Structures are given as structure tokens and as C-alpha cells.
Lab assay of single mutants.
Amino acid sequence: DEWTVEDKVLFEQAFSFHGKSFHRIQQMLPDKTIASLVKYYYSWKKTR
């Protein structure tokens, strides 16, 4: 599952609005599965 720079920026924006409500985040990133969002979240969180 490839994440473009745009995907990553959108994820951060969606996360700032919705927190860990992955269903709502998915509405902003409809091409990503919930599982993909959760997996990305945990790898992204480690870099914070």
C-alpha cells in the first residue's frame, strides 16, 4: 500500500480533526482501507 506525500498530509489533517475515528478519516482518504489507515497511524505515531 503506497502512501503519497498528499496522502500523508491528508491523513495528518484528518487525524487533527477526527482523532482516531478511522471511519471518518477514511472519508477523506477513500482509497485507503481502515486496516491500512490503522497500520499507517501506528508507524506515523512512532515518528512523533
Rank of each mutant, 00 (worst) to 15 (best):
E2F: 13
E2C: 13
E2L: 07
E2T: 11
W3V: 05
W3F: 11
T4I: 08
V5E: 15
V5L: 09
V5P: 10
V5C: 08
E6H: 08
E6Q: 15
E6S: 01
E6I: 07
D7V: 04
D7F: 00
K8C: 04
K8G: 05
K8D: 01
K8E: 07
V9L: 11
V9T: 14
V9S: 13
V9M: 07
L10K: 15
F11R: 10
F11C: 11
F11D: 01
E12G: 04
E12K: 05
Q13H: 12
Q13E: 11
Q13W: 03
A14K: 10
A14L: 10
A14P: 01
F15R: 05
S16G: 13
S16F: 05
S16I: 07
F17C: 01
F17P: 08
F17S: 15
F17D: 15
H18T: 10
H18D: 06
H18V: 00
H18F: 06
H18P: 03
K20T: 09
K20S: 10
K20M: 14
K20P: 04
S21P: 05
S21L: 06
S21T: 00
F22A: 04
F22K: 07
F22Y: 09
F22G: 03
H23M: 15
I25S: 00
I25P: 07
I25G: 00
I25T: 04
Q26G: 03
Q26L: 05
Q27K: 09
Q27D: 06
Q27G: 05
Q27A: 14
L29N: 03
L29F: 11
L29I: 11
P30Q: 04
P30F: 12
P30I: 04
P30R: 00
D31H: 11
D31A: 09
D31Y: 14
K32D: 00
K32T: 02
K32G: 01
K32P: 03
T33Q: 05
T33L: 04
I34W: 04
I34C: 01
I34F: 14
I34V: 03
A35Y: 09
A35V: 07
S36C: 14
S36E: 14
L37T: 08
L37Y: 07
L37V: 06
V38E: 13
V38N: 12
V38C: 05
K39R: 12
Y40V: 02
Y40A: 03
Y41V: 05
Y41L: 06
Y42H: 11
Y42V: 14
Y42W: 14
S43V: 13
S43K: 14
S43I: 11
W44I: 06
W44Y: 15
W44K: 10
K45N: 14
K45L: 06
K45C: 06
K45E: 07
K46F: 08
K46Y: 10
T47E: 08
T47A: 05
T47C: 06
T47P: 13
T47L: 09
T47I: 06
R48P: 06
